[in-house]
Design a protein around this nucleic acid. Structure first.
Lengths: 184, 184
DNA sequence: ACAATAAATGGGGTGGTGCTCCGTTTGACC
DNA sequence: GGTCAAACGGAGCACCACCCCATTTATTGT
């Protein structure tokens, strides 16, 4: 499937990619996802054209920045699904909310499901897959109503993080509210 | 309280204010809250300085654009609180969500509660007041758990609108999910 | 070791933005 | 009408995303 005639990337390319990613991670963590791309390039010591060559859109950059953390969250979902089908979903959603709330910009990155990148190694796709399984188990265990979909839950936690960005306490409270419901 | 020595605004000021507001309303409705302020000024036929003189921040502009609709929603809250304390809250939240989802940008405008403007004629403040009463009646009627606060509910609906912007169907579904809860 | 070559780079240009001076116009009031 | 503060608008500033193209650099074959 992959074009095997492609030569491995040059060493300077790899080096710059790493540098950009590292700087972007730092800057996004402290200033949010709206940070200036020029600034990232500047601090990484590369021209702005190089940044745009490596990451054709802000979205693409964010996807790579958060890839590792999202992968960890997916692993955690598998773990919880295996060990604790009962409260696993709730626990995972709480962890997800905490992560997206603390990583200003992930929520933004998750927003638009469809993009120009490959279908299912976007953060959104990865989390969706992980959640699907967890939700199925939860419904099976009778701790989640049959109607709920993983997609909706992802969007909901995403929404909460987006609106409470930087305030984990409120985010957690809203998530629990949504899980328990407003009606008694 | 208000400085009564202030002269009434000049006619051209009033005219420009109206024009700007009208153009902004149209443009925001079709392009979202991020629309270019320059563009608004251009289409209103005024210099960009004039726009900034009338609305010192984007936030201030959004507040005025949505003021009327928000006031209507507040009236509706009083109405529902009076007539139907039972399902009034749920109905109102649904209407609120529908409105904020259809008016791209209101959610953005509601986000930051505290600003540089007067405390309680911001959209956020107005809705908060209206919701407070409605929530109190709902708790009293036993249809809402005692823990829930109006502020949290506003943020929650706001979050949903923000994350589903432009998709009322999803927004409604998520709201109902949050009202009923994930657990059975 | 070195030449050939494609890959990768970065400076500078373009067109856009939000915002602010400051000289000029204009409406209101006598 | 004349006066004067109120209001205006264009030009200017700093910043941004994004792109073009001449130049540099890593790799590979000899």
């Amino acid at each position: 499937m992959a074009n095997s005639s492609a030569r491995p990337p040059r060493s300077d390319r790899r080096r710059n990619h790493e540098r950009l990613l590292a700087v972007a991670t730092d800057l996004i963590a402290c200033d949010g996802a709206g940070v200036s791309l020029e600034e990232i390039a500047r601090r990484a010591g590369v021209g702005s054209a190089t940044l745009h060559r490596h990451f054709p859109s802000r979205r693409a950059l964010l996807e790579e920045v958060f890839h590792e953390g999202v992968e960890r969250l997916c692993g955690r979902a598998r773990e919880l699904g295996r060990d604790d089908p009962g409260t696993g979903l709730a626990t995972w959603l709480e962890e997800l909310t905490l992560y997206t709330t603390n990583n200003r910009g992930l929520a933004t990155s998750l927003m638009s499901g469809a993009g120009e990148l490959p279908p299912e190694d976007t953060c959104h796709g990865m989390l969706l897959d992980a959640a699907d399984d967890l939700v199925a188990r939860a419904v099976e265990a009778g701790v989640a109503r049959p109607g709920v979909s993983a997609a909706d839950l992802i969007v909901l936690t995403n929404a909460i993080s987006l609106a409470t960005e930087g305030d984990p306490a409120t985010a957690g409270r809203l998530l629990r509210l949504a899980l328990e419901g407003v009606h008694p």
